[in-house]
Structure formats: structure tokens, C-alpha cells
């Protein structure tokens, strides 16, 4: 078992009323799964993903990640935990504009305090694997959206995470680029056994996954 959510509630106060973002969500994820979270706008997809990614907190319930109770951990340990095991992919890529492709890939390794020589090897490996060796010295703004997202995925993978969280990873891409990214996810999931949870609007993209979770008004249906 990779992670387990039990009776998760999350709400905000608005005009004296509780607005529920997540309502009694239960979820178990095994290693090697490829899950798609679907639902209309405002159904809580991204919130759920952020809670899983430990970027956001929740008000009630329990969350266990690799048998650690996330809800009882302090921020520092939490960030160590996701630094170690989780990679993020964003809709708008969120590469650091001041850094080249190579340096963007190196960034997570720096924060993990990986040694210099090893870092170089890992980055070279990743550039090779994603076929972007020729672009390593370019800055993000010099790349197309598809290429940027490719770098985004490579950066998420470089720390050898157990889990990749992707928030509408193809939202800004055209259909051909989308398909390439989804095929890449599938390959990573099948061949490398990386667990993937993605948020998507697209039925087509959802089909790449092994399981679909539907949300409506913060509730699993």
C-alpha cells in the first residue's frame, strides 16, 4: 500500500457557513497504479491532488503515506517526505525561467543534496532518455509547450519518486502533444512501475489510466 486516505474533510468558512471542498473522501492507492481523477470544475479534483501531495492541509481525517501518518507530521518532515517520494507535474509546466533545461533538471537533486558527480550522471541520463540532449542549454522560453512539459515530467522523475502527481498535465497542450505526454506516462507506469495520479478533464486521457475516480462537490461518487 502506497497511501491511504480515511474520511478526509476539508472546508473553508464563508459568510459564517462551511463550504466543503472535500467531504468524507476515502482512497487507497497501491504501488504501480495509474489513477485519473475526474469531475467538473470546482469538484475538488485539484484540492484532492494537493492534499495527496502534502502541499495542502485538511481539516479532518487521516492520511497515511508509506505507513507514516502525514496528518501528525510537522511541516519539515512532511516536506522531507514529499521531497523523497513525490514528483509534481503542472498544467503550466512551472519551469524556472532563469535556469536552462539542464539546470532545471538538476534542481530537485540539489535540494536532496545529491553529490555533484552523481547529479551530472542522473541529469545526463534523463536528458538522454527524453531525447532532449540537444536542448539542455536552452531556457524554457525557447521551447514549445510540449517540450516544456517534457522537461517538466523529466524534472518530476529525476528524483526517482514513487508517485507522480499531475494536475491537468496536458491542459495547455494541443492534441498531438497531449498524446505524446500521455503515452510517456503510460510507459513510465508500465515499464518503471511509477505510480501516477493525474487530474484531467479529458475522457481520452483518463483512459490511459487503470482506475478513474469521479468527484462531485468534494465527494467521491
Amino acid at each position: 500500500m502506497l497511501l491511504q486516505l480515511n474520511n478526509i474533510f476539508k472546508w473553508v468558512q464563508q459568510g459564517g457557513q462551511r463550504i466543503f471542498l472535500l467531504k468524507d473522501v476515502n482512497l487507497e492507492v497501491e504501488e504501480g497504479e495509474f489513477i485519473s481523477i475526474m469531475g467538473p470544475s470546482g469538484s475538488g479534483k485539484s484540492t484532492l491532488l494537493n492534499v495527496i501531495g502534502m502541499l495542502d492541509t485538511f481539516n479532518e481525517g487521516e492520511y497515511e503515506f508509506l505507513s507514516e501518518s502525514v496528518h501528525t507530521l510537522k511541516e519539515k518532515y512532511r516536506s522531507n517526505l514529499y521531497k523523497e517520494y513525490i514528483g509534481f507535474v503542472f498544467q503550466s509546466y512551472h519551469l524556472l525561467d532563469e535556469l536552462t533545461v539542464e539546470e532545471n533538471l538538476e534542481m530537485p537533486l540539489l535540494y536532496k543534496k545529491v553529490k555533484g558527480s552523481e547529479r551530472k550522471a542522473l541529469v545526463a541520463d534523463m536528458l538522454d532518455r527524453f531525447n532532449i540532449v540537444g536542448k539542455k542549454d536552452l531556457f524554457p522560453t525557447q521551447l514549445s509547450g510540449g517540450q516544456q512539459q517534457l522537461v517538466g515530467v523529466a524534472r518530476a522523475l529525476i528524483g526517482k519518486p514513487k508517485l507522480i502527481l499531475a494536475d491537468e498535465p496536458t491542459g495547455n497542450l494541443n492534441s498531438q502533444q497531449s498524446e505524446e505526454i500521455m503515452q510517456l506516462f503510460q510507459k513510465l507506469n508500465k515499464e518503471d512501475g511509477v505510480t501516477i495520479i493525474q487530474v484531467t478533464h479529458s475522457e481520452k486521457n483518463a483512459e490511459y489510466g487503470s482506475r478513474i475516480i469521479n468527484l462531485l462537490d468534494g465527494r467521491k461518487i
Partner: peptide, 8 residues
């Protein structure tokens, strides 16, 4: 971004 990449 840096925080999601593991920066504290």
C-alpha cells in the same frame, strides 16, 4: 515551484 521541488 522550488517548494514543490523539495526546497524548505
Amino acid at each position: 515551484v522550488r517548494k514543490t521541488l523539495g526546497s524548505n
